[in-house]
Design a protein around this nucleic acid. Structure first.
Lengths: 212, 212, 212, 212
DNA sequence: TATGAATGAGTCTTCATTCAT
DNA sequence: CATGAATGAAGACTCATTCAT
């Protein structure tokens, strides 16, 4: 293990914060944000609430950290999975990864739902949340722009609007899955996503490239 | 007006409940569900919390009523606006109405976001919410089925999947609008919806009808 | 009892606040400000802590109110007792009243000591406290000025300085009494005050009036 | 310098305790006793709370030590300054030193105010505090008695009462200065003290000595 | 029907203290 | 000697709920 100058474990502090964040997420998904007290999170961790205040000044700070942690992970996952793919396929892979339903994915979506609900009525949280949303949307925009540059998609396509459409579709699928994951047979969510992306390609794809 | 034995108009009781629900919604959207106490709702009404107890046994009952009230209104609006339209256009009108951005619409969507967030971790609420969701989805399914019956859409179309896709798109647009309503120019949301519906028609529309 | 328009007792609210303030004072003098919790105050009142939050938004507000209440009472007492006295005697009576040692007086002084200690390090409190102090000092200044006007004291006397001296003597006596009330035989505190006031008269008294 | 067995200088331990006490005093004057936590004191020292535990078993012990340290210093200062003065002048010098307003003096007085406030409601602390007070009073008594012996002051003077009067004046001036140090022009506090002492001399001074 | 006083449980937060390294 | 992680108790505060008027 990496040690700090004085022989104390280094990075443990941050690692512990992540542990706590993860515990907080589990508890929130299980009990709901309203019922999830610090005591519950501590119990989930097998420690007392004092530990939590040791690592986070505030409950709000804890939740904020947890949220960012979850979001960052999601981004990393998308980036990782699309790393060695290119062309339109890259978009498909990237987004498809995010709608593959399993228990982790459902938990992730439920956290998103929780945080969105919490942000309403709190301008500061709302802005933070909006930024996260924009980050995702910009990511897609960048992909679309790249596809324009490489001649896969037409130059006259409204990149911004299409990106928002894709983002909406992704979020909407997540909403549906959160509600009733069991109503979705394996592959259905991916199918809808594919349909949507095919629509984008149909409208803006340049002949001779992806279609033919 | 119908009167009760003592001369008090019938329906007053229910009307008051609606008033309270509306006040609760305004407060929740403004302060967030976590911060919205009964006292705040009472203050919004210009009365004390005692009044709330008269009309609702519980805070949970109040919120449940408020939620149902909001949802029912949304359904009514959709039904009303699509009343004298038929064919594929009916679907367009019905759904378009729901994504026309104004302050009411944003408030409505934010309430939905609040209630969704609240439902996570509370199986009973989640089920209630899922039912509302299913109700909307069934509505669209019914419309699609009718369009199949009237030969507008192909019989082999997977009605259930398409309905879920449309629902997802609608919810996703709402999510985006909630986050940053000002990022949407008038008509953009409708445009994305139209694009999506056009996609449905393109895939499943029967020649000779809407397509030419 | 005075009633409000709707038949509810009027003024009860403020009366209750005073009750609570008095209880808080008793508890603080008995246990010290650090140990005096809201629960202790509530117990002293024979009610629960909820009542306290009903009448005071904050512990700080409660303590502030209590302090003001105590101070105002002290002022009223001084004014009352000096109401029908005039000349230099008026000053003597006014101040003598404040250093007559009994259990109430000791409690009052101890509260002052508590509040002074609490004010250190809290600029806001300090200012409030300073204002109270200044109020007392201005009162004495006014008396001295009046005695100048009526020819009892010389015009060239430094009113401000003398007033501060008297205030200091009063506060200092209170300090001593707080520490060890039993060390003071009846009349000793008054004697020291008299000596001090005599000194003032000796230095600034105009022949023919009080001295002769 | 004297060394312990292991080569560590004796007195280091005590010196560190004094350092800590001084830090504690600074923090208390700055933040108030209620807000001054061990962590704040440690931070002021540039170390962690663990260090404090090494030198003091208890927070209370730390504060007690700090208080005694402050008081002892005040006594030392008075003794030092009056070392080579005699007669009535000795009293003047001794006390005058204590009311010369500068930032150190204000801090000292504020600490006294803090400790006095803290003592109320805590019989043990109160007794300790009373003892400190008595020590000061006895000191003045001793001076007065000496002045009687040397024929400066009349034998029939009530030494105890006069000593308490002087003590009261000193404490009262301190109280005033604590509240609003800026309200005092240089020399005003000394002037009031001088006036008071002159009064003592006027009442009890033996002709032919200090008066001439 | 409405008021608002009172309750009391629940939660967050702070903090002195302990202890392994 | 010093660190900082962990404890756990204590206190303030919030708030839904009840109830007498």
């Amino acid at each position: 293990m990496v040690k700090s100058k004085r022989g104390r474990p280094f990075g443990d502090h941050e690692a512990r914060r992540v542990q706590i964040a993860a515990a907080a997420c589990r508890v929130m998904v299980r009990m709901g944000i309203a019922k999830a007290g610090l005591a519950d999170i501590a119990r989930e961790m097998g420690c007392t609430t004092g530990v939590l205040s040791h690592y986070f000044s505030d409950k709000e700070q804890l939740l904020l950290f947890a949220k960012n942690y979850v979001f960052d992970q999601a981004f990393e996952r998308a980036a990782r999975v699309a790393a060695d793919v290119s062309g339109f396929e890259r978009l498909r892979v990237m987004l498809g990864e995010s709608v593959r339903i399993d228990s982790d994915m459902v938990e992730r979506c439920r956290l998103l739902t929780i945080f969105n609900g919490r942000a309403v009525g709190d301008p500061r949280l709302m802005q933070i949340q909006a930024r996260r949303n924009e980050r995702f949307w910009r990511l897609i925009e960048a992909e679309l722009t790249e596809l324009q540059r490489t001649g896969v998609l037409a130059a006259q396509m409204d990149v911004s609007l299409e990106a928002r459409g894709i983002t909406a579709m992704m979020d909407g699928l997540a909403d549906q899955i959160v509600m009733k994951p069991r109503a979705w047979k394996p592959g259905e969510a991916e199918a809808l996503l594919t349909i949507y992306l095919d629509g984008v390609l149909a409208r803006h794809g340049v002949r001779g490239d992806g279609m033919h």
